[in-house]
């Protein structure tokens, strides 16, 4: 992840009134890499499994993955787990390259959305995503009967030729908003939980409103440990990672 020094020094900032709305804080000190989030995401979002061969070709459809990067050599070797999903960039590289406006920024929820019914499968967006979080339906993947009974009716089942990615479980956001509205109140902090945060046994993933300074996610993101992934690309990610603790090994 060497820094490209050809990029001129420039610090991206949110324009007034355009700040993000929903965000995540992921505590890498307590993420144990258990992959519960990966499974939960697949179960919630009707993500197909692709089988050994396609998975080997890098066509796996995971919307969230646990990265683990090696540093050093045995025995001074160390690594860390880092869950990576769509960072819902405020200035998203995937958006300007889409010729059919299938990858667009939602003004209402300030999310980066993928409109399946517009997508024609150019895959430019995936090519331009520095986080490599967009996945493409290379085939109509099979869900033999009766596995299809599990499909979540709140999430569109995608076809071959369509790009997809993490939505921050927008169906759950809508559900909570709808519920709150029908009760004449605001959505309270912690009411919306994407599938990954809901499953996380360590509670390492926290989701909420980053435009509310009192929310749990805002408070966590403001801790000294927070940083953004590939910050120098000026993508304005809405996911904050909290650095892990000291890792002295074999010292």
């Amino acid at each position: 992840m060497a820094k490209n020094h050809n990029i001129p020094e420039y610090k991206a900032e949110w324009k007034a009134g355009e700040e993000g709305k929903w965000g995540m804080a992921i505590d890498m000190d307590i993420c144990t890499g258990c992959n519960a989030c990966v499974a939960a995401c697949a179960m919630e979002n009707n993500i197909p499994f692709v089988g050994e061969e396609d998975a080997g070709y890098g066509r796996g459809m995971h919307w969230i993955r646990i990265e683990r990067l090696w540093e050093g050599k045995y025995p001074e070797v160390k690594t860390e787990f880092q869950p990576v999903m769509c960072q819902q960039c405020g200035s998203a590289p995937c958006e300007p390259v889409c010729p059919v406006f299938a990858s667009v920024h939602s003004q209402a929820e300030k999310l980066n959305v993928q409109v399946y019914n517009r997508c024609v499968g150019t895959r430019y967006c995936a090519n331009n995503c520095p986080y490599v979080v967009r996945t493409f339906n290379w085939r109509d993947y099979d869900r033999p009967e009766p596995l299809n009974n599990q499909l979540n009716p709140d999430v569109t089942v995608r076809q071959r030729g369509v790009m997809e990615k993490c939505t921050f479980c927008v169906q759950r956001i809508h559900k909570a908003q709808d519920q709150a509205k029908s009760e004449g109140r605001e959505v309270f902090d912690g009411e919306v939980q994407p599938a990954c945060a809901q499953a996380c046994p360590a509670d390492a993933i926290v989701f909420g409103r980053i435009d509310d300074p009192e929310s749990r996610v805002s408070k966590l993101a403001k801790q000294g440990r927070g940083y953004k992934l590939l910050e120098d690309l000026n993508t304005l990610p809405q996911v904050t990672y909290l650095k892990g603790g000291s890792h002295v090994r074999n010292g």
Partner: peptide, 8 residues
């Protein structure tokens, strides 16, 4: 009129 209000 936001996309993700109906399409997700």
């Amino acid at each position: 009129i936001s996309c993700e209000t109906c399409h997700y």
